[in-house]
């Protein structure tokens, strides 16, 4: 994956020279979010952002920071339980998205008798199982093939911080996302985080001060769009403060 410095605006045509040159000629070109194919062979952008390509997967897409979260299958999200119905919990991802459902049995080792009790306004770290345009998204806290939770489930303690959707995506992308602030902090302080694609970051640092400092550091990197140098400075300052 490579994020080029090409900034594109809606309506721009993507020249074929910037498309990925696949090693395997048979693999069809995949268009990701923000791109549209007009037959026979024109590709135009629909949003403003940076063009990203992946030669191995023969994929091209636009990295952009949008304000509104649209659920799509496979996303990790932090959901807030609204209420409990007969078979499932009704959850809210963001105030602007339709409510999502989380079945009572979609937890590790849950049966009719041992299903977890979640009260209104508690937080759950979950994966989006399916999300269609017409139906409300369905969540799950368990990998259907293995029956294991893989770290998903109710979140206890800590607090959540609002981050931009672009930041959440970069944090989840790991090293490729170019966010090193959490790694830098984890060398000296112990804490737990969960990143939701719906623009939420859950942090538990064991005590109030650590939790706050970590959440604020990520928010600062997000709001000021700091590069690696800037992030290192933030890490240094935060660690000195602790």
């Amino acid at each position: 994956m490579s994020v080029s410095a090409t900034i594109i605006l809606p309506g721009d045509e993507i020249p074929s020279s910037t498309l990925p040159q696949p090693t395997n000629k048979k693999k069809p070109l995949t268009l990701g979010p923000g791109l549209r194919h007009i037959p026979p062979d024109t590709i135009v952008t629909t949003v403003a952002g940076a063009l990203a390509t992946d030669t191995k997967k023969n994929a091209v897409w636009v990295e952009y920071n949008s304000g509104r979260y649209l659920p799509s299958a496979g996303d990790l999200v932090i959901a807030t339980v609204n209420n409990s119905a007969a078979e499932n919990f009704n959850c809210i991802l963001t105030p602007n998205t339709p409510p999502a459902t989380l079945p009572h049995l979609a937890f590790e080792g849950a049966t009719r008798k041992t299903r977890p009790q979640l009260y209104p306004n508690s937080l759950v770290y979950a994966r989006i199982f399916n999300a269609g345009k017409e139906s409300s998204p369905e969540l799950t806290c368990v990998d259907p093939s293995t029956g294991k939770s893989d770290g998903l489930g109710p979140l206890k303690g800590g607090t959540v911080f609002q981050i931009s959707l672009g930041m959440a995506r970069r944090l989840l992308a790991g090293r490729k996302g170019g966010v090193i602030v959490l790694e830098g902090l984890s060398e000296k302080v112990g804490f737990e985080v969960a990143i939701g694609r719906n623009g939420m970051l859950w942090v538990d640092g064991g005590n109030i001060k650590t939790t706050l400092v970590i959440g604020k550091a990520v928010q600062e990197v997000d709001e000021q769009a700091l590069g690696e140098k800037g992030q290192k400075k933030v890490v240094e300052r935060v660690l000195r403060g602790l």
Binding site: P95, P120, N121, K216
Partner: peptide
């Protein structure tokens, strides 16, 4: 109105007991 989660509620109350406001 989006209500605050139980985690945030407990966190804010705990922080206030320690004389800390979330935005410092």
């Amino acid at each position: 109105e989006v209500e605050v989660s139980v985690n945030e509620r407990a966190f804010i109350q705990q922080a206030l007991q320690e004389n800390v406001r979330l935005d410092g």
